[in-house]
Amino acid sequence: MTIQHYIFLAVALFSIGVIGVLTRRNIIIIFMCIELMLNAVNLLLVAFSKMHHLAAAAVDATTQAGIDGQLFVFFIMVVAAAEVSVGLAIIVMMYRNTHSVDVNFLNRLKH
């Protein structure tokens, strides 16, 4: 599989995520769409990392090139996990207060 396949898949996932965030009002769906975007990015990072590593390894077998991409993926996963825990807590609080998970109920933040 060439790198293009990964890119297409990642773009498709990311776009689905974006559209989901923009069009849905259910905050849980929005949340899942954000996860989708993050994972699209993760996928890209891994794919490119692998690509760079293979290219560099052909010259020097002991190279560490491309490893930083994979590292970032871990970072993102950690951050995403933290985000989920905070986000879900907010959603729970929101549900308790409004008995709804519709984001449009949150417009009262403005005052």
Binding site: V18, V21, L22, R25, I30, V103, N104, L106, N107, R108, L109, K110, H111
Partner: peptide
């Protein structure tokens, strides 16, 4: 612009 609609914020962001 700061209407409080989360959807609009997100749209702007995108």
């Amino acid at each position: 612009l700061q209407s409080g609609q989360v959807g609009i914020y997100l749209l702007l962001m995108v």
